[in-house]
C-alpha cells in the first residue's frame, strides 16, 4: 500500500519517533507557561540535557540512566533561570534567551572529548514479534520506550492540569498570581517547581536526540528543536493533547518531505518545509482575532514576575 512511492505505515511510525524531542520539550514548556512563566531557554535546556544524557549513558552503559541524567541536567540548568527570575525578578524573556546561549556554550565546552563515541543502544520496549504484525506492528509496537513515555506524559500532563488540585493550583498561579498569593499559595515556589519540570522534560527530549535519533554527540546537536517546541506550545494554545497533535504535525511534515524527496516525488519540498511555520502563523492569527488574548488561552499572568511584597 503505497502513495506516491511512500509507505504510510513507515511514515507514521517514523513521525512518532521524530516528534519525541519536540513533544517532550513542548509538554514541559506548556506546564511552565501555564504557571505564568515564559522560559525561552528551552533550546539551552535541551542541549544540556542532550549532553548530560549522553555523558551519563556512555559512562554507565545504561540508556535509562542516560535519560535520567538528561532530565537532571536540564532541570539543573533551569534552576539558574528560576533563581534569576523568581528570586532576583529578572526579565523572563531576556533571561530565557541568555539561558539558551549559555546552554549552547556550556554543552560545547562540556562535550569536548565526547565526539565520535557511540552511546549504548536504546532497545525496543516490546518483543520484535509484535512489531512484525503488518500495519499495526510498526506503528503501535515497534518503538523504543521513550516514544510510549512521551505519549504517557501527554496524558499525565493533561490529567494533572485538568482534574487534580495540583493542576488547579498551577493554573491559578498562572492566571492571577495575586489572587493565588492571597489564597496562601507560594507563587514563586510553585513556579520554581514548574520550571524544573520544564527543564527535566526538555532535558529528556534533548537526550532522545543524542541517544536515539542521532546516537552520538556533536556540538549544536539540537539545532533549533527548542524553538520549534516553543512554537508548538503557542500553536497548541497551552493544551497537552494539542501539543501532541502539533508535535506530530511538525514532525510528520519534516519526515514526509524527506520521504517525498527520497521517493523522487515532484512536489516542491520548500512548500512542505515551510508548512509548519505557516500553519503556526495562521493559527496565531485565527486565535488572536476574535476575543483577544483570552480566546487564545494564554495564561493571564504569562511572563510577569511576582513579588509577594507588592
Amino acid at each position: 500500500m503505497d502513495f506516491g512511492g511512500i509507505n504510510p505505515v513507515i511514515l507514521i511510525a517514523g513521525l512518532m519517533a521524530t516528534s519525541v524531542p519536540i513533544l517532550l520539550a513542548a509538554l514541559g514548556e506548556a506546564v511552565v507557561e501555564r504557571s505564568g512563566v515564559l522560559n525561552l531557554g528551552v533550546e539551552g535546556m535541551m542541549i544540556v540535557g542532550a549532553l548530560g544524557g549522553f555523558v551519563v549513558a556512555v559512562h554507565t552503559g545504561s540508556p535509562f540512566a542516560g535519560f535520567l541524567g538528561g532530565a537532571v541536567a536540564g532541570a539543573a540548568l533551569s534552576l539558574i533561570f528560576a533563581a534569576l527570575t523568581q528570586v532576583f525578578l529578572a526579565n523572563q524573556v531576556a533571561t530565557g534567551l541568555a539561558l539558551t546561549l549559555f546552554g549552547l556554550g556550556l554543552s560545547s565546552l562540556g562535550g569536548q572529548g565526547y565526539n565520535g563515541i557511540k552511546p549504548p543502544h536504546t532497545v525496543g520496549l516490546l518483543p520484535d514479534a509484535l512489531a512484525k504484525i503488518p500495519v499495526a506492528g510498526p506503528i503501535l509496537f515497534g518503538h523504543d520506550w521513550v516514544v510510549y513515555f512521551s505519549i504517557l506524559m501527554t496524558a499525565a500532563t493533561w490529567y494533572v492540569l485538568k482534574f487534580t488540585r495540583v493542576g488547579l493550583i498551577i493554573r491559578a498561579v498562572g492566571e492571577n498570581h495575586d489572587a493565588a498569593h492571597a489564597l496562601g499559595y507560594k507563587v514563586n515556589r510553585i513556579r520554581l517547581l514548574c520550571i524544573m519540570f520544564g527543564g527535566a522534560m526538555a532535558g529528556i527530549g534533548g537526550a532522545y536526540i543524542s541517544l536515539v535519533r542521532v546516537p552520538q554527540w556533536v556540538d549544536g546537536i539540537t539545532a533549533g528543536a527548542g524553538w520549534i517546541a516553543l512554537a508548538i506550545v503557542v500553536f497548541a494554545s497551552w493544551r497537552p493533547w494539542r501539543v501532541l497533535a502539533g508535535a506530530w504535525l511538525f514532525g510528520g511534515i519534516s519526515v514526509l518531505q524527506l520521504n517525498l524527496q527520497a521517493a523522487g516525488s515532484a512536489i516542491p519540498v520548500e512548500y512542505l518545509s515551510m508548512a509548519p511555520y505557516l500553519l503556526t502563523i495562521v493559527v496565531l492569527v485565527i486565535m488572536s482575532s476574535g476575543r483577544g488574548k483570552a480566546s487564545m488561552g494564554a495564561p493571564a499572568s504569562l511572563g510577569q514576575n511576582f513579588h509577594a511584597a507588592r
Binding site: 535519533r213 546537536i221 539540537t222 539545532a223 524527506l258 524527496q261 527520497a262 519540498v269
Partner: peptide, 20 residues
C-alpha cells in the same frame, strides 16, 4: 535518490534524511 536537507549542519535532520 537525492534528498535535500537545506542545511549544512543539523544532525537530527541529517539522520532523518538518511532514515528516509
Amino acid at each position: 535518490s537525492v534528498v535535500w536537507a537545506f542545511t549544512w549542519f543539523d544532525p537530527a535532520k541529517e539522520a532523518d534524511a538518511a532514515k528516509a
